[in-house]
Design a protein around this nucleic acid. Structure first.
Length: 305
DNA sequence: GTCCAGGTCGCGC
DNA sequence: GCGCGACATGGA
Protein backbone atom coordinates (compact mmCIF):
# COMPACT_ATOMS: atom_id res chain seq x y z
CA UNK A 1 0.00 0.00 0.00
CA UNK A 2 1.65 3.21 -1.08
CA UNK A 3 0.95 6.85 -0.41
CA UNK A 4 1.32 9.62 -2.95
CA UNK A 5 2.45 13.16 -2.62
CA UNK A 6 2.97 15.82 -5.25
CA UNK A 7 5.74 18.42 -5.46
CA UNK A 8 6.15 21.25 -7.88
CA UNK A 9 9.31 22.99 -9.06
CA UNK A 10 9.48 26.16 -11.13
CA UNK A 11 12.58 26.07 -13.33
CA UNK A 12 14.16 29.09 -14.95
CA UNK A 13 12.48 29.96 -18.22
CA UNK A 14 12.85 28.98 -21.00
CA UNK A 15 12.60 25.32 -20.15
CA UNK A 16 11.84 22.18 -22.16
CA UNK A 17 11.10 19.17 -19.98
CA UNK A 18 11.00 16.35 -22.49
CA UNK A 19 13.99 17.57 -24.39
CA UNK A 20 16.01 17.79 -21.19
CA UNK A 21 14.93 14.29 -20.15
CA UNK A 22 16.09 12.90 -23.50
CA UNK A 23 19.07 15.23 -23.91
CA UNK A 24 21.59 12.38 -23.76
CA UNK A 25 21.85 8.72 -22.84
CA UNK A 26 21.34 9.08 -19.09
CA UNK A 27 17.57 8.66 -19.36
CA UNK A 28 18.17 5.08 -20.52
CA UNK A 29 20.44 4.12 -17.65
CA UNK A 30 18.99 2.42 -14.60
CA UNK A 31 17.38 3.39 -12.34
CA UNK A 32 16.05 5.98 -14.78
CA UNK A 33 13.23 4.89 -17.03
CA UNK A 34 11.11 6.83 -19.47
CA UNK A 35 7.38 6.16 -19.45
CA UNK A 36 6.26 6.89 -22.98
CA UNK A 37 2.56 6.85 -22.06
CA UNK A 38 2.83 9.33 -19.21
CA UNK A 39 5.75 11.27 -20.67
CA UNK A 40 7.39 10.81 -17.30
CA UNK A 41 10.90 10.13 -16.15
CA UNK A 42 10.66 7.64 -13.33
CA UNK A 43 13.27 6.47 -10.90
CA UNK A 44 13.64 4.92 -7.49
CA UNK A 45 15.47 7.16 -5.09
CA UNK A 46 17.03 6.37 -1.75
CA UNK A 47 16.84 9.48 0.45
CA UNK A 48 19.42 10.26 3.10
CA UNK A 49 16.97 9.21 5.82
CA UNK A 50 16.94 5.73 4.29
CA UNK A 51 13.42 6.12 2.92
CA UNK A 52 13.17 4.67 -0.60
CA UNK A 53 10.65 6.33 -2.91
CA UNK A 54 9.45 6.15 -6.49
CA UNK A 55 9.58 9.47 -8.32
CA UNK A 56 7.46 10.07 -11.38
CA UNK A 57 8.61 13.33 -12.92
CA UNK A 58 6.66 15.21 -15.58
CA UNK A 59 6.80 18.71 -16.96
CA UNK A 60 4.84 21.50 -18.54
CA UNK A 61 6.82 23.91 -20.69
CA UNK A 62 4.70 27.03 -20.80
CA UNK A 63 6.98 29.88 -21.84
CA UNK A 64 5.67 32.11 -19.10
CA UNK A 65 5.52 29.59 -16.32
CA UNK A 66 7.29 26.29 -16.90
CA UNK A 67 6.76 23.67 -14.23
CA UNK A 68 8.21 20.35 -13.16
CA UNK A 69 5.83 18.07 -11.26
CA UNK A 70 7.02 15.23 -9.09
CA UNK A 71 4.64 12.53 -8.01
CA UNK A 72 6.24 10.79 -5.04
CA UNK A 73 5.14 7.25 -4.18
CA UNK A 74 6.20 5.89 -0.83
CA UNK A 75 5.40 3.51 1.99
CA UNK A 76 4.83 5.01 5.43
CA UNK A 77 5.33 8.74 5.68
CA UNK A 78 7.27 11.44 3.96
CA UNK A 79 8.96 13.98 6.21
CA UNK A 80 9.20 17.67 5.29
CA UNK A 81 12.97 17.33 4.99
CA UNK A 82 12.50 14.38 2.66
CA UNK A 83 10.26 16.52 0.48
CA UNK A 84 12.94 19.20 0.45
CA UNK A 85 15.57 16.63 -0.49
CA UNK A 86 13.44 15.40 -3.40
CA UNK A 87 13.01 18.96 -4.62
CA UNK A 88 16.78 19.44 -4.54
CA UNK A 89 17.36 16.14 -6.34
CA UNK A 90 14.95 16.83 -9.17
CA UNK A 91 16.18 20.42 -9.51
CA UNK A 92 19.71 19.13 -9.91
CA UNK A 93 18.70 16.45 -12.42
CA UNK A 94 16.90 18.94 -14.65
CA UNK A 95 19.18 21.89 -13.88
CA UNK A 96 16.16 23.94 -12.90
CA UNK A 97 18.30 26.89 -11.78
CA UNK A 98 20.81 26.87 -14.57
CA UNK A 99 20.99 30.13 -16.47
CA UNK A 100 21.83 29.55 -20.14
CA UNK A 101 21.06 33.07 -21.33
CA UNK A 102 24.67 33.75 -22.42
CA UNK A 103 24.64 30.59 -24.50
CA UNK A 104 21.33 31.58 -26.04
CA UNK A 105 22.71 35.00 -26.92
CA UNK A 106 25.49 33.31 -28.89
CA UNK A 107 22.95 30.99 -30.53
CA UNK A 108 20.82 33.93 -31.64
CA UNK A 109 23.85 35.62 -33.14
CA UNK A 110 24.53 32.50 -35.18
CA UNK A 111 20.92 32.42 -36.30
CA UNK A 112 19.42 29.65 -38.45
CA UNK A 113 19.46 26.24 -36.83
CA UNK A 114 21.23 27.49 -33.72
CA UNK A 115 18.49 29.95 -32.86
CA UNK A 116 16.13 27.04 -32.34
CA UNK A 117 18.02 26.03 -29.20
CA UNK A 118 16.90 29.17 -27.40
CA UNK A 119 13.47 27.60 -26.82
CA UNK A 120 14.75 25.97 -23.66
CA UNK A 121 17.08 23.40 -25.19
CA UNK A 122 20.56 23.10 -23.75
CA UNK A 123 19.99 21.48 -20.39
CA UNK A 124 21.61 18.07 -20.21
CA UNK A 125 20.15 15.61 -17.75
CA UNK A 126 22.28 14.59 -14.83
CA UNK A 127 22.09 12.31 -11.82
CA UNK A 128 21.09 13.26 -8.28
CA UNK A 129 24.64 12.68 -7.09
CA UNK A 130 28.08 13.35 -8.52
CA UNK A 131 28.96 9.80 -7.45
CA UNK A 132 26.34 8.36 -9.79
CA UNK A 133 27.50 10.58 -12.63
CA UNK A 134 31.13 9.55 -12.14
CA UNK A 135 30.31 5.83 -12.04
CA UNK A 136 28.14 6.09 -15.14
CA UNK A 137 30.71 8.13 -17.01
CA UNK A 138 33.46 5.60 -16.25
CA UNK A 139 31.12 2.95 -17.65
CA UNK A 140 30.84 4.76 -20.99
CA UNK A 141 34.53 4.49 -21.78
CA UNK A 142 35.92 1.88 -24.18
CA UNK A 143 32.60 0.09 -24.41
CA UNK A 144 29.47 0.14 -26.53
CA UNK A 145 26.23 1.60 -25.25
CA UNK A 146 24.60 -1.80 -24.74
CA UNK A 147 27.50 -2.79 -22.52
CA UNK A 148 27.14 0.36 -20.45
CA UNK A 149 23.44 -0.34 -19.92
CA UNK A 150 24.18 -3.89 -18.85
CA UNK A 151 26.78 -2.91 -16.28
CA UNK A 152 24.60 -0.21 -14.75
CA UNK A 153 21.63 -2.59 -14.66
CA UNK A 154 23.62 -5.20 -12.78
CA UNK A 155 24.97 -2.55 -10.44
CA UNK A 156 21.46 -1.34 -9.56
CA UNK A 157 19.91 -4.80 -9.40
CA UNK A 158 22.64 -6.19 -7.19
CA UNK A 159 23.48 -3.30 -4.87
CA UNK A 160 20.66 -0.78 -5.05
CA UNK A 161 18.15 -0.55 -2.22
CA UNK A 162 14.76 -2.02 -3.11
CA UNK A 163 11.59 0.04 -3.26
CA UNK A 164 9.45 -1.49 -0.50
CA UNK A 165 6.24 -1.51 -2.53
CA UNK A 166 7.92 -3.39 -5.38
CA UNK A 167 11.32 -4.79 -4.43
CA UNK A 168 12.22 -5.58 -8.03
CA UNK A 169 12.77 -1.84 -8.47
CA UNK A 170 15.85 -0.43 -6.90
CA UNK A 171 17.69 2.82 -6.36
CA UNK A 172 21.19 3.58 -7.59
CA UNK A 173 23.61 2.02 -5.08
CA UNK A 174 25.21 4.15 -2.42
CA UNK A 175 29.01 4.20 -2.14
CA UNK A 176 28.55 2.36 1.16
CA UNK A 177 26.66 -0.50 -0.46
CA UNK A 178 29.45 -1.00 -2.98
CA UNK A 179 32.32 -0.51 -0.56
CA UNK A 180 30.91 -3.00 1.93
CA UNK A 181 31.35 -6.01 -0.35
CA UNK A 182 34.66 -7.61 -1.27
CA UNK A 183 36.23 -6.64 -4.54
CA UNK A 184 35.88 -10.17 -5.87
CA UNK A 185 32.17 -10.39 -5.06
CA UNK A 186 31.66 -6.98 -6.60
CA UNK A 187 33.59 -7.73 -9.78
CA UNK A 188 31.91 -11.12 -10.25
CA UNK A 189 28.43 -9.69 -9.94
CA UNK A 190 28.78 -6.45 -11.88
CA UNK A 191 31.03 -7.78 -14.66
CA UNK A 192 32.33 -4.37 -15.60
CA UNK A 193 35.68 -5.69 -16.80
CA UNK A 194 38.67 -3.68 -15.63
CA UNK A 195 36.27 -0.89 -14.66
CA UNK A 196 35.13 -2.91 -11.65
CA UNK A 197 38.27 -1.95 -9.81
CA UNK A 198 37.81 1.74 -10.62
CA UNK A 199 34.26 1.72 -9.28
CA UNK A 200 35.00 -0.29 -6.17
CA UNK A 201 38.02 1.85 -5.31
CA UNK A 202 36.03 5.02 -5.92
CA UNK A 203 33.28 3.87 -3.57
CA UNK A 204 35.80 2.99 -0.87
CA UNK A 205 37.53 6.35 -1.14
CA UNK A 206 34.22 8.17 -0.85
CA UNK A 207 33.18 6.14 2.18
CA UNK A 208 36.57 6.67 3.81
CA UNK A 209 36.12 10.41 3.39
CA UNK A 210 39.22 10.70 1.20
CA UNK A 211 37.20 12.06 -1.66
CA UNK A 212 34.28 14.45 -1.37
CA UNK A 213 32.70 14.07 -4.78
CA UNK A 214 29.52 15.89 -3.89
CA UNK A 215 31.50 19.00 -2.99
CA UNK A 216 32.51 19.26 -6.65
CA UNK A 217 28.93 20.12 -7.55
CA UNK A 218 29.18 23.46 -5.77
CA UNK A 219 32.84 24.12 -6.33
CA UNK A 220 33.85 27.55 -7.57
CA UNK A 221 37.29 26.34 -8.62
CA UNK A 222 38.39 27.37 -12.10
CA UNK A 223 37.67 24.67 -14.66
CA UNK A 224 41.33 23.57 -15.07
CA UNK A 225 41.62 22.95 -11.30
CA UNK A 226 38.33 21.10 -11.23
CA UNK A 227 39.53 19.02 -14.15
CA UNK A 228 42.70 18.12 -12.28
CA UNK A 229 40.63 16.81 -9.40
CA UNK A 230 38.54 14.72 -11.78
CA UNK A 231 41.65 13.33 -13.47
CA UNK A 232 42.79 12.20 -10.04
CA UNK A 233 39.98 9.63 -10.09
CA UNK A 234 41.16 6.26 -11.44
CA UNK A 235 39.35 5.52 -14.65
CA UNK A 236 38.75 9.17 -15.48
CA UNK A 237 40.92 10.40 -18.34
CA UNK A 238 40.62 13.33 -20.65
CA UNK A 239 37.35 12.35 -22.27
CA UNK A 240 35.61 11.31 -19.05
CA UNK A 241 36.79 14.48 -17.31
CA UNK A 242 35.27 16.65 -20.02
CA UNK A 243 31.99 14.73 -19.77
CA UNK A 244 32.00 15.20 -16.01
CA UNK A 245 32.78 18.89 -16.34
CA UNK A 246 29.68 19.15 -18.52
CA UNK A 247 27.73 17.38 -15.77
CA UNK A 248 29.13 19.98 -13.35
CA UNK A 249 27.93 22.78 -15.63
CA UNK A 250 31.35 23.61 -17.08
CA UNK A 251 31.13 23.69 -20.84
CA UNK A 252 34.52 25.11 -21.78
CA UNK A 253 36.10 21.68 -22.44
CA UNK A 254 35.21 19.33 -25.30
CA UNK A 255 35.06 15.59 -24.72
CA UNK A 256 37.30 14.28 -27.46
CA UNK A 257 36.49 10.68 -28.29
CA UNK A 258 35.90 8.58 -31.38
CA UNK A 259 32.43 10.05 -31.88
CA UNK A 260 33.69 13.63 -31.68
CA UNK A 261 36.57 12.95 -34.07
CA UNK A 262 34.36 11.20 -36.59
CA UNK A 263 31.67 13.90 -36.50
CA UNK A 264 34.04 16.84 -36.84
CA UNK A 265 35.98 15.09 -39.56
CA UNK A 266 32.85 14.37 -41.59
CA UNK A 267 31.19 17.71 -41.04
CA UNK A 268 33.99 20.25 -41.16
CA UNK A 269 36.99 18.63 -42.86
CA UNK A 270 36.55 17.43 -46.37
CA UNK A 271 38.46 14.18 -46.71
CA UNK A 272 41.39 14.71 -44.40
CA UNK A 273 41.60 13.73 -40.73
CA UNK A 274 42.37 16.74 -38.55
CA UNK A 275 44.54 16.48 -35.45
CA UNK A 276 42.58 16.75 -32.20
CA UNK A 277 43.73 20.31 -31.67
CA UNK A 278 42.54 21.34 -35.10
CA UNK A 279 39.23 19.53 -34.62
CA UNK A 280 38.58 21.27 -31.32
CA UNK A 281 39.29 24.64 -32.92
CA UNK A 282 35.98 24.30 -34.77
CA UNK A 283 34.20 25.28 -31.54
CA UNK A 284 36.71 27.84 -30.31
CA UNK A 285 34.33 30.77 -30.86
CA UNK A 286 31.89 29.35 -28.34
CA UNK A 287 34.21 30.13 -25.44
CA UNK A 288 32.62 28.99 -22.20
CA UNK A 289 29.93 27.11 -24.13
CA UNK A 290 31.93 24.79 -26.39
CA UNK A 291 30.52 21.54 -25.05
CA UNK A 292 26.91 22.61 -25.54
CA UNK A 293 27.68 23.90 -29.02
CA UNK A 294 29.23 20.57 -30.01
CA UNK A 295 26.53 18.52 -28.35
CA UNK A 296 23.69 20.23 -30.16
CA UNK A 297 25.64 20.36 -33.37
CA UNK A 298 25.88 16.57 -33.38
CA UNK A 299 22.35 16.22 -32.04
CA UNK A 300 20.98 18.19 -34.97
CA UNK A 301 23.07 16.10 -37.31
CA UNK A 302 21.77 12.82 -35.87
CA UNK A 303 18.16 13.83 -35.54
CA UNK A 304 18.04 15.64 -38.86
CA UNK A 305 16.52 18.69 -37.17
C1' DG B 1 36.90 -17.45 -33.79
C1' DT B 2 38.28 -12.35 -34.16
C1' DC B 3 37.76 -7.61 -33.57
C1' DC B 4 36.88 -3.64 -30.98
C1' DA B 5 33.95 -0.37 -28.39
C1' DG B 6 31.69 7.39 -27.03
C1' DG B 7 39.46 5.22 -23.28
C1' DT B 8 42.70 4.97 -19.58
C1' DC B 9 46.78 3.35 -17.20
C1' DG B 10 51.50 2.72 -16.60
C1' DC B 11 55.43 2.37 -18.53
C1' DG B 12 59.62 3.74 -21.36
C1' DC B 13 61.80 7.25 -23.93
C1' DG C 1 55.30 15.56 -22.66
C1' DC C 2 54.38 11.61 -26.20
C1' DG C 3 53.89 6.81 -28.03
C1' DC C 4 52.49 2.22 -27.14
C1' DG C 5 50.72 -2.19 -25.38
C1' DA C 6 47.66 -4.07 -22.00
C1' DC C 7 43.33 -4.08 -20.15
C1' DA C 8 37.92 -7.24 -18.91
C1' DT C 9 33.76 -7.90 -20.91
C1' DG C 10 30.35 -8.74 -24.33
C1' DG C 11 28.28 -7.60 -28.72
C1' DA C 12 28.89 -7.33 -33.80
Amino acid sequence: MTNNSRLSITPLSPFNFEFTAASHGWVDLSPNTWDEGQHALQRIERLSTGQVVLLSITGADSIHRPEISVEVHYVGRLLPKERREITAIVSRMFRADEDLSEFYTLCKKRGKRWARLTAGLGRLLRSPSVFEDVVKTICTTNIQWGGTKGIINRLVTTYGEPYPADPAWRAFPTPQAIASVSFKAFADSVRAGYRSEYIHTLAKRVVAGELDLEALANSDLPTPDLKKQLLGIKGVGNYAAATLLMLLSRYDELGVDTVFREFVHETYFDGKHPADKEAQAVYEDWGEWKYLAYWFDIWQHWSGK
